[in-house]
């Protein structure tokens, strides 16, 4: 019987001794459930803004390609060059007379030696500026203008000087009047099709502005595909938030990287409920040899802005 009691005692002792109070199932905490960890990074698609040629107009409604069609004729072949080709600095044309003088000097030099350039300029003058030459080339009908202009420009050195002055005046007027800033583009987005649960996962554990070295952050980032022969500076503003950024976009290049812009919880919550994107576009460089490619307009937009979110740190959610 003593053995029996000893056995019972052993059972009682062991039943007590093997209990690990750290594993009390009544104290299971599910407050801090997360997907991933501090080193995780999640990227979420957000917005794709497609800008067509028809939307890129000057103040008077002229399409951007039409604006630069005439500029192409006034611009000489001899221009500065980078990896994308020969370019002209549009901002400098508008603001820097010295720069314009250099460009026009090169134009006149080319007209004197390049019959094709002379022919292009003559065609433009005949088409658009015939009346401006009534005093220099009197009695010439509009139909006869181009041939007579070329003949006199080539044979009459004295008259050529006068014609060059007029050409320089017309070219300067056009080139310095180019619109550096296009009227801003505005797009309304009714909502972003992300569920509240997904949004909560992204924002619930974000570090605040006051955190010196934040680990749980949310950024807007992306790329811009640019088919235009102009490099631009774009500044989208995402209202009603204060989120904005400014970025340089190279001409004729896909995947121009946009700077990462930090978002906070309220920014994303606001954005998913609907936003207006206002994009200010400033033209920096124009590459005349690249040309505008209007068609096929439907298949490829001139500018495609691809925005996505970058969540650094774990995705948080409540169980």
């Amino acid at each position: 019987m003593k053995k029996f009691y000893a056995l019972i005692l052993l059972c009682v002792v062991s039943s007590t001794a093997c209990v690990d109070l750290e594993y009390d199932l009544s104290k299971v905490s599910t407050d801090d459930i997360a997907i991933g960890d501090e080193s995780s990074q999640f990227e979420v698609p957000l917005l794709k803004v497609y800008i067509s040629m028809d939307e890129l107009n000057g103040t008077d409604g002229d399409a951007i390609d039409e604006i630069f069609n005439e500029a192409d004729i006034w611009l000489p072949s001899q221009l500065d060059q980078d990896e994308n080709g020969k370019y002209v600095l549009v901002q400098q044309l508008v603001e820097n007379s010295e720069y314009v003088n250099q460009v026009l000097s090169a134009l006149l030099d080319q007209m004197a030696s390049d019959s094709e350039k002379l022919n292009q300029v003559a065609s433009l003058l005949q088409e658009k500026y015939y009346a401006e030459f009534s005093s220099l080339l009197p009695g010439i009908s509009a139909e006869e203008f181009k041939a007579e202009f070329i003949r006199q420009y080539t044979a009459n050195e004295t008259l050529r000087v006068l014609l060059n002055e007029k050409i320089e005046e017309l070219a300067r007027g056009y080139l310095t009047g180019l619109e550096v800033s296009l009227p801003s583009l505005t797009y309304s987005v009714d909502r972003i099709d992300l569920s509240d649960d997904v949004v909560d996962m992204l924002i619930e554990n974000l570090d605040g502005k006051e955190v010196a070295e934040p680990k749980n952050t949310l950024h807007m980032a992306g790329t811009i595909d640019n088919r235009l022969p102009v490099s631009i500076t774009a500044s989208p503003v995402f209202t009603p938030t204060e989120v904005t950024f400014t970025t340089q976009i190279e001409a004729n290049r896909d995947g121009n990287i946009l700077p990462e812009t930090r978002l906070f919880a309220e920014d994303l919550q606001t954005i998913v409920r609907g936003l207006t994107i206002e994009i200010v576009v400033n033209i920096d460089k124009y590459y005349p040899d690249k040309g505008f490619d209007r068609y096929p307009e439907t298949s490829q937009p001139q500018l495609a802005i691809n925005l996505h979110l970058i969540k650094r740190g774990a995705l948080k959610f409540d169980l």
Binding site: V44, V49, I51, Y187, D190, D193, S195, N306, H308
Partner: peptide
């Protein structure tokens, strides 16, 4: 799937909210 909202001059197209549900 969610590939981001497409915005163009002709407006946006909305879809049901994406969820892992």
């Amino acid at each position: 799937e969610f590939t981001g909202v497409e915005v163009s001059g002709s407006g946006t197209e909305t879809a049901p909210d994406f969820d892992f549900e």
